[in-house]
Simulated scan of single mutants.
Amino acid sequence: MRRDNLRLSTKKRAALKKMSNESGIIAALAIDQRGSLEKMIAAEKGSTTAQEITTFKELVSEELTPFASAILLDPEYGLPASKRRDSDAGLLIAYEKTGYDQATPGRLPDLLPDWSVERIQKAGADAIKFLLYYDVDEDAAINHFKHVFIERIGTECLALDMPFFLELVSYDAGHNDMNSKAYAKQKPHKVIEMMKEFSKPEYFVDVLKVEVPVNMSFVEGFGEDFVFTEKQALAFYKEQSEATDLPFIFLSGGVTAERFQETLRFAKKAGSRFNGVLCGRATWKDGIEPFAREGEEATRSWLKSVGKENLEKLNRVLEVTASSWHDKTK
């Protein structure tokens, strides 16, 4: 069942407006990474502490949220950073436990044990974000478990009138390398079909946070070894946009800032009606080196220059590529 328009309560609409710019585009910054951020810092200096992870998030929040419509943080390390954000920036807080049990098939989701939607709401969040790994072709019992899991979260958000952002990350249960040429051939099917699934009304999702439908490194004109022509890739972006009636935003997926901006322009060329971004590592990951090697002042200097420039360039691209989510809601 598809919806012609998403019906938003007055409170949810106000929260989404807080997380958007004046054009109704979500230009949000994501730094809810936990285990991966720990590894990135440790890779530069050999080890890291919980306080260092918290401090890096605080610096990013303080220096970059004046140029973002919202910030996505986590309850484990990110709450101090939420207090350092710009007063006009909205706040999303992640609800999922980071990572997954690699010994158990299915990349099964789990919640942070000490948190609920109500507790996150009381911590000052404007919206909830939950990350789900999903393979549309996986065993039906595993996917049924995930369907019910997301129904529960959607219902919890509905009861508390909190916008529910569902982040979907595709994978293939039979392979480990999601950056491979072999997976690039499957990715459009995986991404588009999971968007169709979680656009169903029983999940009460308000905004989808999704991958672009193709690995641009394997698109003609973007990579030396391509599996899709430009025309084929454009068609996948168009099909993705038409697969949902919900507002949807793109995640950066760890690519460079330049590649992500190129990708958004490509999506616009395809006729995609995406509604913004939640951009993480593409904005701030190169700030980890000065943080690990030189300390806070060097990090601030990088954020005030390169980090700010990354966001301003992204905002300029969004102005000419993204569409207002208001067009998809009542």
Results as ranks from 00 to 15, higher is better:
112 L>V: 12
114 D>G: 13
114 D>L: 15
115 W>Y: 14
117 V>T: 03
118 E>R: 09
119 R>G: 04
120 I>C: 02
122 K>R: 12
123 A>Y: 05
126 D>C: 08
126 D>Q: 04
126 D>W: 02
126 D>F: 03
127 A>D: 02
129 K>V: 06
133 Y>I: 06
133 Y>G: 04
134 Y>V: 07
135 D>W: 05
135 D>R: 00
137 D>I: 00
137 D>Q: 09
138 E>V: 03
139 D>A: 13
139 D>L: 11
140 A>N: 12
140 A>K: 13
140 A>H: 09
142 I>E: 07
143 N>R: 14
145 F>H: 12
145 F>V: 02
146 K>I: 06
147 H>E: 10
149 F>R: 06
149 F>T: 07
150 I>L: 10
150 I>V: 15
150 I>F: 09
150 I>A: 08
151 E>H: 06
154 G>I: 08
155 T>N: 14
155 T>W: 04
156 E>W: 04
156 E>F: 06
157 C>H: 05
157 C>W: 05
158 L>S: 15
158 L>N: 13
159 A>S: 15
164 F>D: 03
165 F>H: 02
165 F>E: 00
166 L>T: 03
170 S>L: 03
173 A>D: 15
173 A>S: 15
174 G>S: 11
176 N>R: 10
178 M>Q: 12
178 M>L: 14
179 N>E: 12
179 N>K: 15
180 S>A: 12
182 A>G: 05
183 Y>G: 04
183 Y>K: 08
184 A>P: 06
184 A>V: 08
185 K>V: 15
186 Q>F: 11
189 H>V: 09
189 H>S: 10
189 H>W: 11
189 H>D: 14
191 V>T: 09
191 V>M: 05
192 I>P: 01
194 M>G: 00
195 M>F: 03
196 K>Q: 13
196 K>G: 11
196 K>S: 09
198 F>S: 00
199 S>Y: 00
200 K>C: 03
201 P>K: 11
201 P>W: 07
201 P>Y: 07
202 E>Y: 08
202 E>D: 12
203 Y>W: 11
204 F>L: 09
205 V>S: 02
206 D>N: 10
207 V>M: 05
208 L>D: 01
208 L>R: 02
209 K>Y: 02
209 K>L: 04
210 V>R: 02
212 V>Y: 05
213 P>L: 02
214 V>M: 10
215 N>H: 14
215 N>F: 07
215 N>V: 06
216 M>Y: 14
